[in-house]
């Protein structure tokens, strides 16, 4: 137990979450070590999105612990979450780009505004990241002028501007047209291939099979099964996971 604590970047212990009197997370025990790529799967309403949002401090929790490098962070004030969030990037289902800013400003605004980067350095990094996601030349466009897939690629690199240690992806392709899902998944695979610790909530089984080091399967607010993709997709232990896989293939 203590040994694990040292290598886990993020760990949750018995995490519980209520919306009013309605409980949505029933004691989630989870950990991710550096360089790991974990895909969280589960049917809608299983609590997977809520769970990943807890890890970014966007949801309050009512029981258990969230640890970042062994330090409890679940009870931090909003002010203390702020520096942490720069180390834990988050990508949302619906991109959530700032609609009134150009692509370049979307990328540079937060780091420059918060005094973490000089404007020139931020722009340089932004352009390099845009190059990497094949969006060089779009830096002066507004989000509304881009396709959904392009917007999500911008959102991904926006959250990577400050070189986070961990990336959280909350169903990054659910809001996309089928033809653009592939390009976004390829980008995520590329960006995380160099050992960027990442937690990805998705329904894309092919992506999970190819890219995940580990699959975590959630059902009814609990983790009911986890293991390597081969194990999970070929011989899952639980009946729930079996029927989930059957319905998603």
């Amino acid at each position: 137990m203590t040994q694990n604590l040292d290598t886990a970047v993020i760990r949750t212990i018995g995490l519980e979450k209520y919306y009013g009197i309605h409980q949505v997370l029933f004691g989630v025990d989870f950990s991710i070590t550096e360089g790991e790529r974990v895909v969280i799967m589960g049917s809608s309403g299983s609590g997977k999105s809520t769970f990943i949002r807890c890890l970014n401090g966007l949801e309050s929790t009512q029981g258990g612990h969230i640890q970042f490098h062994g330090r409890d962070i679940e009870a931090l004030a909003e002010r203390d979450w702020r520096p942490l969030r720069r180390r834990i990037g988050m990508v949302f289902q619906d991109f959530a780009l700032f609609p009134h800013m150009t692509v370049l400003n979307n990328l540079t605004f937060a780091p420059v505004r918060e005094g973490l980067m000089k404007k020139a350095a931020a722009e340089e990094r932004a352009l390099a990241l845009l190059e990497r996601v094949k969006l060089r030349g779009k830096e002066r466009s507004f989000p509304s002028q881009l396709s959904g897939g392009q917007q999500q690629r911008v959102a991904i690199v926006r959250s990577m501007m400050m070189s986070p240690e961990v990336m959280l992806f909350d169903e990054p392709t659910s809001a996309l047209d089928p033809e653009t899902v592939g390009e976004v998944l390829a980008i995520i695979q590329d960006l995380t291939s160099e050992g960027l610790t990442s937690i990805i909530v998705t329904h894309e089984t092919n992506f999970a099979r190819k890219c995940a080091n580990r699959i975590v399967y959630m059902d009814a607010g609990k983790i009911v099964e986890e293991g390597s993709p081969e194990k999970f997709f070929t011989s899952p232990d639980t009946e729930r996971a079996r029927s989930f896989i059957a319905s998603h293939n």
Binding site: G57, L58, R85, F92, D94, A96, E114, R158, S159
Partner: peptide
């Protein structure tokens, strides 16, 4: 959309 605020928060922007 509440996501706009959340995106700002998750980027570490002050309120």
């Amino acid at each position: 959309p509440p996501r706009l605020t959340e995106a700002g928060r998750s980027l570490g922007l002050r309120p």
